[in-house]
Design a protein around this nucleic acid. Structure first.
Lengths: 256, 256
DNA sequence: TACTGTGAAGATATTCACAGCT
DNA sequence: AGCTGTGAATATCTTCACAGTA
């Protein structure tokens, strides 16, 4: 086969486990906050708490990147920020296009967390001719007809799909044909892509359903009600908070 | 940690593995689509393709729920829809509040995927007095001051946080104190909650960073360029598409 | 015959616990 | 003394492959 290796199990890339990659952005966020407060070093314990994971996991994760810490001391914040950024590929510029400028697309366009990392909204695309030219977040919306040209002119390799479900696959096909190789999908559909193209999905409805599952469980658990009422109890677990997303899959939103 | 008990490893609840729970909504979505097309039965192979997983995984997942299929035939669509819905707790009504009605909050309020499942947007809450009373998605926005009363009056146990990062923890604390036990967090912060409260997070920036990591990898892989160019090739992997979200963690968005 | 349900194998991920630096 | 880095032990998840059954 062409692009990616041959039959990859969809996991691990080079030496870094997928689960670790998924946590690097979390560490990076925590480190950035420390950096802004001019904190020079952190211990695995402190950083883990700030990122919401446990320290053994964090140290193991960092061990895949190399030995960036100092025994007896901790990690140099600035240095780690740089190393993780580089590992994630954030030291380069990533032009991104957002397709589907409904409520959600507009929210994404306005999202401030882009520029701070290496991302740049290169263009907004929508199928509604009435939207063409109208600025959203200071960027004029362009029509779907020009999708291929926009991708090409801007050297875009990452696309965000925020269209209704019905349009998603078609948009996806065009993005891929135009050269996009990574897609973040907010439409509640399974996208079919050729080998070598990465898709990640975000689905609000799915997340809520997972919460409902656990919520239901809790309700049925009012048997040995030894402790206090439903609210109350402020015991923290080991490190940070409760289970901040027990892994699992991701979910998706959709505009109007 | 997760639900209640004392020291659980943040995984599995009762007999159903967390990874399976996270996929049930996917199956449900695919089944609902089949149901709308009046398809009476599906094989694990077909349903798996529609949900974007492989059939062995799907069968294993279903085996945790019970033996709902018929050998030699497949699964009864309607029956499965019901069983999964029940398992996820979607046969009951879940009133939800959304706090933070910026771009994203509004997008969520307008999201149609709610009612179709058991969710109902009971109230929209924002800290901006200027927004109070203004209808978004047909629901009048209420002020944060009344948060506790709103939670209480509506019997809300699931809250969605779509505020800026700085306000998230405070909102979270109030939601929890008012009785909310499940939170979907779109703010890019780690929330600290007492034991017994579930938090799931959705962070756009994190998803993009994970894509960037893989994208960078691909770029550095143009060594043994034996096949065709970057685009092209339409070979599907085993079942559905390529790696549709290699699990990992979740990420978060933020309004303006 | 065709397809489910599942034990067993294999792959990943998490956690423990301690050796090894500074 | 304090904290990192990591082998080894566990726990979890995925995949295989086939017995069982309608």
């Amino acid at each position: 086969m062409a692009t990616g290796r041959t039959h990859r199990p969809a996991t691990r890339s080079r030496g870094i486990p997928e689960a670790t990659v998924a946590r690097l952005p979390l560490y990076l966020r925590a480190l950035t906050a420390l950096s802004e407060r001019s904190v020079p070093t952190v211990s695995s314990e402190e950083l883990a708490a700030a990122a919401g994971v446990n320290s053994a996991k964090l140290r193991k994760d960092f061990s895949y990147l190399g030995s960036y810490g100092t025994r007896g001391v901790g990690y140099d914040v600035e240095y780690l920020v740089y190393q993780i950024s580089r590992e994630l590929g954030l030291t380069q510029d990533w032009p991104v296009v957002i397709v589907g400028i409904g409520n959600l697309g507009a929210a994404l366009a306005n999202y401030g967390g882009f520029a701070s990392r290496g991302f740049r909204v290169a263009a907004l695309i929508d199928a509604d001719p009435a939207m063409a030219g109208k600025p959203v977040a200071g960027i004029p919306v362009q029509h779907t007809d020009d999708l291929e040209k926009i991708i090409d002119d801007n050297g875009v390799s990452i696309g965000v799909i925020a269209t209704p479900a019905g349009a998603a696959q078609q948009v996806c096909d065009r993005l891929v044909a135009a050269g996009v190789t990574s897609i973040l999908n907010f439409a509640p559909t399974v996208l079919s892509v050729p080998d070598g193209v990465d898709v990640r999905k975000v689905d609000l409805s799915i997340e809520l359903q997972i919460l409902a599952f656990h919520e239901q469980r809790k309700a049925g658990e009012e048997a040995q009600a030894d402790g206090a009422g439903p609210a109350a109890v402020t015991r923290e677990e080991s490190d940070a908070s409760a289970d901040q997303g027990p892994d699992g899959d991701v979910p998706a939103v959709m505009p109007a």
